[in-house]
Structures are given as C-alpha cells and as structure tokens.
Design a protein around this nucleic acid. Sequence first.
RNA 1: UCCCCGAUAGCUCAAUGGUAGAGCGAGCGGCUGUUAACCGCUAGGUUCUAGGUUCGAGUCCUAGUCGGGGAGCCA
Length: 463
Amino acid sequence: MEKMTAAQARQVEAIGKHVRLEGWLRTRRDSKGGFSFLELNDGTCLGNVQVVAPAALPNYESEIKKLPVGASVRITGEVKQSPAKGQPTEIHADRVELVGTADPEKYPLQKKGHSFEFLRTIAHLRPRTNTFGAVMRVRNRISKSIHDFFQERGFLYVHAPIITASDCEGAGQMFKVTTLDLNKVPRAEGAVDYGQDFFHRPSFLTVSGQLEAEIFACSLGLVYTFGPTFRAENSNTPRHLAEFWMVEPEMAFYDLNDNMDLAEAFIKRLIKDALEHQAEDMQFFQERVDKEIIARLEGVLKHDFVRLSYTEAIEILLKSGQQWQFPVSWGTDLQSEHERYLSEQHFKKPVILFDYPKGIKSFYMRLNEDGKTVRAMDVLVPGVGEIIGGSQREERLDVLEARMKEMNLDPEAYWWYLDLRRYGTVPHAGFGLGLERTVQFITGMANIRDVIPCPRTPGSAEF
RNA sequence: UCCCCGAUAGCUCAAUGGUAGAGCGAGCGGCUGUUAACCGCUAGGUUCUAGGUUCGAGUCCUAGUCGGGGAGCCA
C-alpha cells in the first residue's frame, strides 16, 4: 500500500491503487444508503478528497458517523472514479482511523466562510481554510520562482546578515538588538554605555540587505539576497508589516535600464509561474477573492511596463484635470493618490517611475548629469502600489562622499562601503522586492496580514 | 502617529431610549450517491471595558481597549 497525498489521489492516474491518506476532515455527509462521505484535506492542494466510508466498517456507528469537522484522520482504501460530479476520483475506504478529534462545540472553524479579520484572531488554525492554504501554496511557489529566476541567470544567493550595526541605512526606524538589562542599563557620562553591550556598539535588525549585497556584487558579479527584513515604524495599513521578506538582487556592470529590464522580467516570471503551476489556487482567488485577478495578471504578462521619468509623471499628473488632495509639484514625493492614478487609471498597468529628484531619495543613488535627479526607480502595480524600489548605485567615490556630506552622514561610518568605490569600483544597480506585496498582487488578497504566516504589526505578535 | 467607521449568540449581522432577534454553525431527529446538501426541533447572551445622562441604555455622552478603512513612512 502506497501513502498518497490528496493532490495525487485526485488525479485519474491514481484510479485502481490501494492507498493510505492522512489529513484533516473538512466536512462529513451521512447517507442512509449505508455510507458517509468524508472530505479530507491535507494541504497539498485546494480541493478535498472525497472518501466514501461504508456502514460495514467496524467503527462506523461508534466513530465515523460522529467524526467532527477539523478532526485528523487516517484512511486506507481504493481510489476509484467518482460517479458523481464535483470530483474526478474518490476513495472507497476499508479503514477509517480517527487520529485526533476536534470538539465541535469549541472548534472555531466552521464549514461556512469566515471573515479574514476573525481568522486573524486564530492565525494558528487559519491555514486549515481554503483561502490560507491557497495563499501559502502560492507564496511557496513565488519563493521557488524567485530562486529559479535568479539561479537560472547565474545569480549567487547571498545570505545577508539579520543583525547589523549600520544605524542609518536610510530606510526608517530600526529594531534595537541588545543583551543589556533594560532594568539596569549601564551608563557612561549620562549616555547608554553600549561598550558593555553584546557587540560593544549599538546594533539593530536589518532594514535591508542592500549594502551587504553590494559587497558581493562588487566581487562576484550577480547576486541576490532573500530574507526577513524589519521595520519598527508605527505603520498601520493593509500594505505594511514590521517583519516581512524581501528579495534584493544586486548586479555589477548593470545600469538603470538593465535594472528595469530585470525587474520587469522578474515580476512577469513570478506571475507566469503562479498561473501555470498553481492554477487551481488561482482559480479559487478569482472566484472568491478578486473577480478580475487572472485577467489582470494575464494583462500584465502581455504588455510592456510603462517606463516614465518622474518629471514626465509630474506633467501627466498636472494635466490630468484630477482634484488632488495633495498638490503635485516637481521636487516633492508622489502621494499614494498620484501613484494609484498612474498605475490604476491612466495606464492601467504596471508603471516604472525613474529619475527622481535627489532630495527625496537615498544617498547611495547615482546622480544624473543634470545634478538634480538620481537614477532611482519604483515599480508601481495596480492595487498594491510600490512593489519594487531600486536604483543604479553611485560608484564615483567623490560624488558619493559629497552626497553623504550633503545629507549629514558620516563617511567614516561607511568606510567599507566607500572602499568598494575606492578599489576597483564598477557601475552597479539593484532593487528590493517585497515578497508579501508580491503575494498580494498575485493573489488579490487585500490585506498584507493575510499573506504571511504570522503577521507582525504594531501591538500585535500573538502567534 | 493623525482622520473616519465599527464592537450584540461560536461566526455574519438585525433591533425608533421601553420584553435582545435572524441566518449560518452546534446538539437531537428525519431524508438523501451526497457536494457550503436538504427539512424539523432544541440549546445558546456580563450587548467590548469603566464611568455618566435617564423612571428606563444594546441604543445617548465621556474615556479607554480592540478591529477595519484612509493618510504618512515604505517593500
């Protein structure tokens, strides 16, 4: 006898085999015809396996007829073609074993649909629902495609550190890492004496692996990082998490155009793989979550992304005739309403904005000849907004140092980063893609807290 | 952090300042190669918390907690 997954048992190729299946009961329907229908799910696919349990089984009256939703069971039986609509195959059980019961008076998951808000309060049980199973399978597929995409192109996977001592990477508030006793913080001359802390200096959870990725791009060529990222910002939106996963490719001898080409090919690959390999899950999102998701994604695959300079974008926004809550003017950052207008209304597809005013971007972005703009790029997608932020990096030592002074950064603190420009500097570029925002974009899930196993948001870290 | 909205049965929601209800779920019974099955019956409530107004508060007021949406920050 062969152990089989639900995904395998639902294929017609399995017909005729005697198999063992293990999983959780989604529902039970008893028939007076002398059997019960059990629907088994083991997470390997969206659909359930229908099990026909005949009344002749020795534990039929004592156990099978009482099996509650949520119970874990082990089934053995023969896979047969199903005579009824709804499933290609079914298991005719010769043995049904209750592994662990679930008190129906207390088990929170019901056969009916639940709100995502409620499911968030039982995040330990929500992967047992159709939606979260599908989210997790698509998330897994996207993760695999990320590696496939880069590995096929010869990129090295670099493991950037989680703990960092760079306290001003320019990406917002950081979580502090310390082993000091917070009840008795050592002090020297009034200030906290970090000399006594674990690293003998202040340290933090990373907000980006970019600076470290640059080290390896400037020695090994094409690299990417893929790992957790932490932002201690008090952000309360459906698009922000305090802990999220980010992919950061970094490429030597790439300019901004190469960077944009790569970003576009990358996003398209993730979409293509999800549609192709998670078709059943994607169909589910189409039916239950977002009626237009598949058409939208197929549209993204078909067309080139719009590439628009910041300056051109400002012109479009000024000429749009729209009433803006925030005024549009050259030199200020675009507001959500502006970005949404561009990708959702004006172009109705992904837009790559580039060449932003230097005043609103980070110190490491390459200065253009005009002296006013930098080689930055943001990829905006309908529904989610910014999904990628990146740039060509400033490889000229003197320009970089001047920029740092302009922004009141201490070049000494970045001595090793500057060394990369001091010795054998090369033009290079890279970007960061938010994994969860990508999962949102591909599944149509509205809230980022519903596309990560255990969401971390201000005031919330229960699971 | 700011603005807006919300919190009533296990879940989703209703209830003019005057006896707290429905659907689904659950339990029991019926029916059926069933498909979010169907039909009947039953149980199920500190109306988020603490104050206040009122003869009387689920309903009005104040504060707080939690949740959602929008904004900012960004991925």
